[in-house]
Amino acid sequence: MKSGSNLEKVILSGNPAVTAELGPPMSADPHEVIKKANILKGFCDAANITDCQTAVVRISSIAAAALAYREGLEPVMQMTCRDRNRIAIQADLLGAAALGLKNCLCLAGDHQKFSAAGRLKGHPGAKNVYDVDTCQLVGILKKMRDEGLQEGGDPLEAAPKFFVGASWTPMGDPIDFRPVNLLKKVNAGADFIQTQGIYDIELFRSQMEKIRNMGLHERTAILGGIIVPKSAMMLKYMDSSVAGVSVPKALIDRMNKAKAAAGDDKKKMRELQEAEGLKLTVELIHQILETPGVKGVHIQAIEWETAIEGIVKAAGLYPRPTFTE
């Protein structure tokens, strides 16, 4: 065992792993994190704690992960390369390990320009760091854990033992290069992979076939990503604007049909679309888990953590495995 994390244990046990996501608030109040942690606890093996996603300032991933951990929810601390250089990254990794955190997902991070989207002012004038990139960050975590060395070569008295993850966008373009992209992350030392949201199962399966031919599914645990859809509008937006996400027309049509069934009733329109979104999610979970080489699912119910319990139960993934020790 590399880290002894619950997520690692589930993956080693051969059960399909389930991860969820917890977005920290723009607030110094811990209660939101505590509340969400208790909503998710028991329905996933670990939950990603986002690291200022869309470059918006929120409770830091490490602090929120520590809060979630205290509540009994195993966190996957996210670590982006956007805001910290290798000195800050490694210092934070030591701190995170000292607080008991055992999973870390390495990410490039959304560009700071994202922060000014919608109603937020954000910090589009911020200076970004990118001292290291995702592949290199994965390598740093592996070197710290397995060799007990900092990136610069100095020894660590106690090495941080992280289960090291990275993201992968299987359907991003250039699509024929995406398997190489994964190969590099695996070669760098990624123990697990969480993918960008998958709606186009056929395309995902053709990418997974390439991954199996490269033998990568045996060297890392691939968890297929699902972004729980709430409305036809959200699906259309993701199809047109979210990098690496394509949504088949049939899924958008299904959601439109659910919407149309509500007539002019706005409340019903929302309810029917959400219900269809949950149904669709469960179907996607099954299709992803039936894809050879996949070891689990990463379910992102963005600002809709309460949906996870129902989804996991409906998908037949409850109760989650537990381990004594």
């Binding site: 390369c81 956007r82 490039a108 991070g109 959304d110 560009h111 320009k113 970004n128 990118y130 990139d133 995702t134 592949c135 290199q136 993201s167 992968w168 966008t169 991003g172 373009d173 250039p174 290069f177 992209n181 590099k184 960008q196 604007s241 979210v242 990098a243 690496g244």
Partner: peptide, 16 residues
């Protein structure tokens, strides 16, 4: 590259 990535691309590539 907006993120000066040495091992790109990241997941943010959209239609090139």
């Amino acid at each position: 590259c907006s993120k000066t990535l040495m091992n790109g691309p990241c997941g943010g590539t959209n239609k090139g």
